[in-house]
Design a binder for these strands. Structure first.
Lengths: 251, 251
DNA sequence: ATAGCTTTGTGTCAATTTTACACTATCCAA
DNA sequence: TTGGATAGTGTAAAATTGACACAAAGCTAT
C-alpha cells in the first residue's frame, strides 16, 4: 500500500474514474474479477461491480488503471488495454449507487466520465481471499453475468468485443494462461473469447504453422487421461513474424 | 447556432474535452480537417490542431463530439466512432497552449482528459471558407502532417489505426465518398487507409463478389479519359451479408 | 491385471481463396 | 486522327480452409 501513501498528497479528480475489466481463464471458460459491493446495495441494484476508482491529478490513465489492478490484486506488469470512455450524464441514478460512491470518497452528485480498461491476468496468479482489503473480489464466469452495477455491464460487453477483435490480430491470449500450457487449453481459450467452436485439428494446424510456440519435452502430470505435451509462447518468434507484416490470425 | 443557445445554461465540465479527427477523402488521398490556431501560437508550437472543446455536463460524449463537428462544419448525422481517452498530466505544457485554451474558455491550469473521436465526412459536403466562425479550418492530407498542437498528433495516429482496423471489418469507407462513386475511387480510398498498394483486379473482384454495390447505368462525365461506371453502396445487401455472420473483408 | 473411461494427437481430400500478371477499350484534347 | 490517360477484364498456380474419424496414452475402479 505504499503507492497510496505516495498519492495521498495529490488530488483526486472528481470527474474522471477508471474501471478495469480483469479477465481470467479457469482453463474452461473466460472469467472476470468482480467486486461484491455487499449489503449496502442489495435492496436496490446489482451487487457486483467492476473494480475502479477516481484518478489522481498527477497520474495518467494507464497508470491509474494499473494502480486499480495493483490495489485489488497486488499484480504489476500486467497486459492492459484501453477499451474507451463511457459517460452518460445520467449514468449514476440509483440511491444505492450514491451511497456506494460516498464510501469510496467519490462525489455522488458529480458527473463522472469513466475510462474502461481490460487486463489479462493468469488466473492462478491471483486467488481472492476474503479480507477487508480485498473487498470481496471474486472470479465470475463471463457467461453467467447478466447484470452489473452502474453501466458496468455495458462496459463489460465492450471489453469482450475489444478482446475478441484484438485476439484476431495479436496473440494476447497467452497472457491468460500459465507459462506452460497445452494446445487444448489454448484451443478452449480461443473458443471462449471468440464465442464459437473451432475445429480441433484445424486450430492446431493453424497455430503450429505460425511457429510461435516452443514445444517443451514435458508432459502434463496427474490428469486422469492421456497427458498432453506442454508448450510455451515464444516472444522472439512472434516478433520475427510481425516483421513480415503479419497482422491477422485469420479467426 | 441554436444548439449553443440551448447549452448556454449548462455548465462546462472543466476536466473533460472531446477532440474530433474529421477524415475526408479528396479522391486521391486521405485528409483531415484541422484548425489553424493562428499567430497566437506561431512563435511556439505547431499552429494546427484538431477541432475540440470541453463537454457540457448535460450531454454525453457522443453528443459532445457531434456538437463539435456541427459547430465547425454544420454537418449532422455523420459517421462517428470513439477512438479512446487521452490524458497525461503534462499533456499541456507550452505557454502558447495556455493562451489558446483561455481563448476557448478552458481552464489552462486544470488537468484535462480528452476523449477522441474520428468521423468520416464526404469531403464535398464541407468546403471550408475563411470566416471567423469557421476558425480557419482546412483539409490537410494526412501524409503531410508531421506535427500537431498538444498531443493531437498522437491522437491522429491512434485514429488512423482505428480506422484501418475498422475498415477491415465494416464497409465504413463509403462514408468518405459521394453517393455515386467509381471502383477506382474506392480502390484508392482503401489503399490510402490501409497504407499499402492493393492489386487492382483482385480488389475489384473481391468487392464485387461481396455484392454490396449497386451498379448504376450511369457513367462519369467530363473526365479526360475513358469514363468509369458509377456505383452506389447498397445498405440492404450489406445487412443481408452481416446476417450470415460475415465480419471480415480480408484486407 | 485388466477393462473402461477420458482426452490427446494425427492426415487427407475437395473446395475456396489468394496472388501475380498484361492487354484492349473508351473518352478527351490537341 | 493521333496520343494520352484511365477503365475494365481472365487465368493459372499456390495457399488456405473446412470437414471429417480413429488409434494411443494414462488414470481409475474392479
Amino acid at each position: 500500500m505504499q503507492h497510496i501513501q505516495k498519492k495521498i498528497n495529490s488530488e483526486l479528480n472528481p470527474n474522471v474514474s477508471v474501471d478495469c475489466v480483469i479477465f481470467g481463464f479457469d482453463l474452461e471458460q473466460l472469467t472476470v474479477l468482480l467486486i461484491d459491493r455487499g449489503e449496502i446495495s442489495s435492496a436496490f441494484g446489482p451487487r457486483l461491480a467492476l473494480p475502479g476508482n477516481l484518478i489522481y491529478d498527477n497520474e495518467n490513465l494507464d497508470m491509474a488503471a494499473n494502480r486499480v489492478l495493483d490495489e485489488l490484486t497486488g499484480l504489476k506488469d500486467i497486459y492492459l488495454e484501453q477499451v474507451g470512455a463511457f459517460g452518460d450524464p445520467d449514468r449514476i441514478h440509483k440511491e444505492s449507487d450514491r451511497e456506494w460512491l460516498k464510501s469510496i470518497r467519490a462525489e455522488p452528485e458529480a458527473r463522472v466520465i469513466t475510462v474502461a480498461y481490460f487486463t489479462l491476468v493468469p488466473m492462478s496468479d491471483y486467488k481472492p481471499q476474503a479480507s477487508s482489503f480485498a473487498k470481496n473480489a471474486d472470479w465470475i464466469p463471463v457467461s453467467e453475468i447478466k447484470e452489473l452495477a452502474f453501466d458496468h455491464f455495458e462496459i463489460l460487453q465492450a471489453a469482450k468485443e475489444k478482446l475478441k477483435q484484438k485476439i484476431k490480430i495479436q496473440p494476447i491470449g497467452f497472457n491468460l494462461l500459465p507459462e506452460k500450457f497445452t494446445l487444448s487449453q489454448l484451443h478452449r481459450l480461443y473458443e471462449s473469447i471468440l464465442d464459437k467452436p473451432l475445429d480441433k485439428r484445424n486450430f492446431r494446424r493453424k497455430i503450429q504453422k505460425l511457429d510461435i510456440l516452443t514445444s517443451l519435452r514435458e508432459k502434463q502430470r496427474g490428469v486422469p487421461h492421456k497427458p498432453s505435451l506442454l508448450y510455451e509462447f515464444n516472444e522472439e518468434k512472434y516478433q520475427e513474424l510481425t516483421q513480415t507484416g503479419f497482422d491477422n490470425f485469420g479467426f
